[in-house]
Design a protein around this nucleic acid. Structure first.
Lengths: 151, 151
DNA sequence: GCAGAAAACTTGAGAGTTCAAGTAATGCGA
DNA sequence: TCGCATTACTTGAACTCTCAAGTTTTCTGC
């Protein structure tokens, strides 16, 4: 027995396509801005940002994967690329010999400091300049509903 | 003179990170579902879907790029891959000899018919089952605000 | 205290995207 | 109507991401 398909209503379809349009628009703009400014994909920027907020600007690889909501494999490749630029330093973990840590270097921190204003400005221009305070609250509410674990 | 950076407020930062979390969650789930069911990335599914809605299930390449909100280059590569699967057929445009059209084949349409229910179910489960009617309206409103051309 | 399972990474291959450059046809201004 | 900019598309290379497989520790149950 297969359930009959529960197609989207007109409102749902409009919202879904709006979601996709927003997604493409914001992602491509953010990516392009970081690419132009630093040749850096957004995911790599997020790694730098998360490291910058961590104690000693250092995180375990697995923890870095968690906070950036991505796979260990991706982190492994990305950290290698960032290490090649001299922005991140990898080291074996002292507490678990399977593990490795990634640390933001001074040069990586300097790059982030230089990049952050343009990035924030882009986020603001693309999103927050366009939303009312009520819409910002609503957005947070919606993203929470979609992201929270199943009931 | 460089403007002082207008950093995000706590609410804005929370909304932005919520947005990123939603994005990752939804994108990876949708992509994985289509990948498992048909070895198809979401962008390719969108091409099939847009073609299926077009007259004669046919669109110019440039028009296909517009409606899927992506680059001509990507469309060109993607259509080639879909043509290799026999799901899309390319042909020179009759009205403009620079142009080409892409048409959904019967086999491509059949694939879409088979795929659509699972895809819709995933969209529903990930998004609309989790949002109230008011939230759905708010989402559409937010995406419109972010996507609409500058004032 | 010893397998066997699980965890933490890494690696390499395959696939998709982007970017820059190239080709061919069309539009337009003088 | 000639020349030049523009449009429409393709292509190849570089890069990122995903997926599966492999290595090395650590954990767990007996």
């Amino acid at each position: 027995m297969t359930e009959p398909t529960n197609w989207l209503t007109a409102e749902e379809q409009a919202a879904w396509r709006g979601y996709l349009a927003m997604l493409r628009h914001v992602s491509t703009s953010i990516d392009r801005q970081l690419q132009d400014d630093a040749g850096l994909p957004h995911g790599y920027y997020q790694i730098l940002a998360m490291l910058s907020e961590a104690p000693d600007r250092t995180l375990r690889m697995s923890r870095l994967a968690e906070v950036t909501m991505t796979s260990q494999s991706r982190i492994s490749h990305a950290v290698k690329a960032l290490e090649d630029r001299g922005w991140v330093q990898r080291a074996p973990s002292t507490e678990d010999r399977r593990g490795h840590t990634a640390s933001l270097t001074d040069s990586g921190f300097a790059a982030l400091v230089e990049l952050a204003p343009g990035h924030v400005a882009a986020v603001r221009r693309l999103i927050f300049d366009r939303l009312s305070p009520e819409q910002i609250v609503a957005l947070k509410d919606i993203t929470d509903s979609i992201t929270k674990p199943n009931a």
